[in-house]
Nucleic acid binder design. Structure first.
Lengths: 199, 199
DNA sequence: ACCGGACATGTACATCTGTACACCAATGGT
DNA sequence: ACCATTGGTGTACAGATGTACATGTCCGGT
C-alpha cells in the first residue's frame, strides 16, 4: 500500500517502444480489481477510494480500472456487492457447520467475536457499505439483501421474528465493537443473545 | 442547498472595491459553520464534504471555513463532535421526560421510531460519525463516549449490563432501519426490547 | 489619536481526481 | 494469410479541491 512505484503513471515519458506485456488475456482481472477496491475501502475508507489507489493495490495500470468499470461509482458498487456476497457465503458455511443440538447463543457470541477479531476487515467493509448505500440508491438493495439473509439464516433455528431480533442485536454488537479497541466480553454477548432466545 | 450563488468565488472578477461587509464580528460564525457541515454530511455524506460546499451551506465565503478550521479533518471532527453532543443532550431530555412508572420497552420503541422518522437526519450523521472514526483516531473517543452515554442512560432504569444490551439493540435497530425505506413495526421493536428486559 | 491584533475575505496555486481516447497486441473466424 | 473485434495500456486534460496568504476592517487598550 505504501509503495507508489508501479502503475502511478501520469508522467510525461513517452515510453520508448510499445508497452511491456500488453495484449495478454487475463480473465481474472476484473475480479482482482474489485477485490483490490475492497481492500482499499477496508484500509483507508470509502472517502479515499480512487482509481489510482485501486490500480496500485491491484498491481494494474490506471487504464485497466476505467476499462472494466466505467465510473467510480460503478467500481464501488461492484466491490461492495462482491464483499456482501462473500460475507453471505461465509455465513452460510458457518451455519452449515453449526451442529443442530448445539447452543445457539454460544455460537452467535463466537460469531460476533470472530467478526470483531480475525475478520475485522470484513466487518469494516460491510459497515462502509451500509453507510455508502445511504446516498446511493443502487446499493440500498444490496445492503438490505445482506441483513435479510442474516435474519433468514437465524430464523432457521427459531422463528421469523426472533431471527430478525437476533440479526438486529448481532448488527449492534458488530457496530459497537468495531470502534472500540477492547472487544466486548464473550460471556456478556452470549447472555444478551440468550435473553432474546429465552423471551 | 441547491443555490450555488453566494460564496462560490474562485472567479477572476476583481470585485470593484473592497468586500461588502467585512470586519464585522460574528461570534456565532464558528458554530454556524460546524452546523452547516453537519447538514452537508447528512445530505451528501462524508465523502463529499468539502470546504466550498460547507461555505455555500453556511452562507459564508470560502475563506471563513479555513479561518476557523485549519484543515478539513479538523472541520469534520468538530462537526461530528458537535452532532454527538447535540444527540446526547436530546437523549437526556428524553430521559428526563420519561415518567418513572411508565413502560420502558414501549418508550424505547418510540425512541427508535423517532430516530428513524422525524430525526432521521440526526441518525444518519451519527452513523457517519461511527464509520468516519474507523480511520480517524481523533474521533474514536467521541463515538465511544456517545454509546457509553447511551448505555449509562439506559442502565439508570435497570442495571449496567442490561443497559449495555439495550444500547446495543438500540443501535442495531437504528442501523437496520436507516437503510430500509420501510420502518420496522412498533410492536416488533417493542417486543424485542421487552425480551431483553424480562430475561 | 493611535496601533496591535483578531476577525474576515477574495484570490491564487499546486495537486489530485475522474474520465476520455488514441494506440498496441493478441485472438479467432474465414 | 488476413483482418475485425476485443483486451489492455499509457497519456492527456479539464475540473475540483485543500490550503496559503496578502489584504482589508474593526475593536480594545493606552
Amino acid at each position: 500500500m505504501t509503495t507508489p512505484d508501479a502503475a502511478t503513471s501520469d508522467a510525461t515519458v513517452p515510453r520508448s517502444t510499445g508497452a511491456r506485456a500488453a495484449g495478454q488475456r487475463d480473465p481474472d482481472r476484473r475480479e482482482r480489481i474489485a477485490r483490490a477496491a475492497i481492500e482499499v475501502v477496508a484500509e483507508v475508507g470509502v472517502e479515499k477510494l480512487t482509481h489510482r489507489r485501486v490500480a496500485a493495490a491491484a498491481g494494474v495500470p490506471l487504464g485497466s480500472t476505467t476499462y472494466y468499470f466505467k465510473t467510480l461509482d460503478d467500481l464501488l458498487a461492484s466491490a461492495l456487492r462482491q464483499a456482501a456476497d462473500d460475507d453471505v457465503d461465509h455465513l452460510r458455511t458457518w451455519a452449515a457447520g453449526l451442529d443442530a443440538g448445539g447452543d445457539l447463543a454460544e455460537a452467535l457470541a463466537e460469531l460476533v467475536l470472530h467478526y470483531l477479531g480475525p475478520a475485522r476487515a470484513q466487518t469494516v467493509v460491510e459497515h462502509q457499505l451500509y453507510i455508502a448505500a445511504l446516498h446511493r440508491p443502487a446499493l440500498q438493495h444490496v445492503s438490505q439483501e445482506w441483513d435479510t439473509a442474516l435474519a433468514d439464516l437465524f430464523a432457521g433455528y427459531t422463528d421469523a421474528e426472533t431471527g430478525r431480533a437476533l440479526s438486529v442485536l448481532f448488527c449492534g454488537w458488530q457496530l459497537q465493537g468495531i470502534v472500540r479497541e477492547q472487544l466486548p466480553g464473550r460471556r456478556e454477548v452470549e447472555a444478551s443473545f440468550r435473553r432474546l432466545l429465552d423471551g
